[in-house]
């Protein structure tokens, strides 16, 4: 996600479009990205590796924050 202090022009565009569709009462929209990363098993080492991926490529930590969430395949 863009850091809170960073202006998010895409989110602003969505925020501007919502009232035109009749969706009122929304005070802010921020737009980010979601990556679904599949691994055979989740271990501490794998999570550390994924954090490294996020820091080096998936996110630009100068302008974005990220969180890693583990979800089991349904």
């Amino acid at each position: 996600m863009p850091k809170p202090e960073i202006l998010d022009p895409q989110g602003k565009a969505v925020l501007g479009a919502l009232p035109r569709l009749g969706f009122t009462g929304v005070t802010d929209v921020r737009q980010g990205k979601r990556f679904e990363i599949e691994v055979p098993e989740v271990t501490e080492a794998v999570l550390a590796e994924i954090a490294k991926m996020a820091d080096s490529l998936l996110a630009n930590t100068v302008i974005e924050n990220y969180t890693v969430r583990v979800e089991q395949d349904a």
Binding site: P2, I6, L7, P9, Q10, K12, A13, N60, V62, I63
Partner: peptide, 17 residues
């Protein structure tokens, strides 16, 4: 250059989109 951290900061979509 900013992605490579050779220069600080970042470049975002223009404020007027």
């Amino acid at each position: 250059l900013v992605e490579a951290h050779l220069l600080p900061g970042g470049l975002l979509r223009n404020d007027h989109r």
